[in-house]
């Protein structure tokens, strides 16, 4: 597979919109053409070649080498191929992506995977707020695909999520799965306060009780749910999540948010229940 490598030349004073660098947008272009792609840097446009040392051909895979957290909208709206970020990424990583894969070895900023419709997002570090959330003004967040976070996520992870799966190996901030419409989110660490606020449907699967639930969640009792076997079997290639299978199918189930129909569920599988 041919690779196009972009290495950030120097630290940035302003944010860059990286959305022109998706595999399909750079396909068929030579390195010098790629270097002339205009990028928004703050409120002005500059050639990509001024900001990045560019090597390789265009291509199914783009590698971005940067420790900056100011590279926004990496892989936005991409529909195939793959992007590997060696370092950190800014806000709106994979925003609206439809297919393909993005892997980030470091941390990412706000709203990673927001409004994504398909594809795979893998984050080795931590994610900011509104992971898999919605674009401002939109009623639905992530609508398909998967997000796997080895670290922790900020507040409002899975906000307004409609479909797809978010797996978080670490902790989550407050208001996890808030306004969730459907889909599945798994958190192996600790969720903060107000988990599931305004959740309409969907499943939030936890291994620890969250710091607090809204009073509009009802205790549904303990249940053996065999769909959890199907779910955890799908994690066999994700070592961090393989332990979920060992927890068994017996879960404490909470239903809510009753202020929004109450068809959402929070399933808590803990060692003493397994």
């Amino acid at each position: 597979m041919s690779t196009l490598t972009l290495r950030l030349r120097s630290p940035l004073s302003q944010r860059i919109d990286m959305s022109p660098f998706t595999p399909e947008l750079v396909a068929g272009r030579q390195a010098d053409e790629v270097a002339r792609i205009l990028l928004w840097l703050g409120n002005r446009q500059v050639d990509a070649g001024e900001l990045f040392a560019i090597n390789g051909n265009s291509t199914e895979q783009i590698v971005i080498q940067s420790d900056s957290d100011r590279l926004d909208r990496i892989g936005a709206d991409m529909s195939g191929g793959s992007i590997r970020v060696e370092g950190n990424a800014g806000a709106y990583l994979g925003c609206g992506m439809r297919d393909g894969a993005i892997h980030v070895s470091g941390d990412v900023g706000l709203a990673a995977g927001c409004a994504m419709r398909g594809g795979r997002l893998a984050l080795d570090g931590n994610a900011g707020d509104f992971l898999g959330g919605a674009l401002p003004g939109e009623r639905q967040g992530m609508r398909g695909g998967s997000i796997v976070v080895k670290g922790s996520a900020g507040d409002r992870a899975g906000d307004s999520m409609r479909r797809g799966m978010i797996l978080i190996a670490g902790d989550c901030g407050d208001y996890s799965a808030s306004r969730m419409v459907a889909g599945t989110m798994v958190v192996l660490g600790q969720c903060g306060a107000h988990t599931g606020t305004a959740m309409r449907r969907g499943s939030l699967i936890l291994t620890n009780a969250p710091k607090s639930l809204p009073v509009t969640f009802n205790d549904n009792g303990r249940h053996n749910l065999n769909f959890l076997t199907l779910l955890s079997r799908g994690f066999k290639d994700l070592p961090a999540f393989a332990s979920l299978a060992d927890k068994g199918n017996l879960v404490q189930r909470w239903l809510g948010d009753l202020s929004c129909g109450g068809k959402g569920e929070i399933l808590i599988t803990t060692p003493d229940l397994a």
């Binding site: 479909r163 797809g164 799966m165 459907a182 599945t184 449907r201 499943s203 249940h223 053996n224 749910l225 065999n226 769909f227 199907l230 779910l231 799908g234 068809k263 569920e265």
Partner: peptide, 19 residues
């Protein structure tokens, strides 16, 4: 409840012995 797992869609239908 609909669940999409591994590209397949499943239905969880509440019944009197569980799902």
């Amino acid at each position: 409840i609909s669940k999409q797992i591994g590209g397949r869609r499943y239905w969880r239908i509440p019944v009197m012995d569980g799902e």
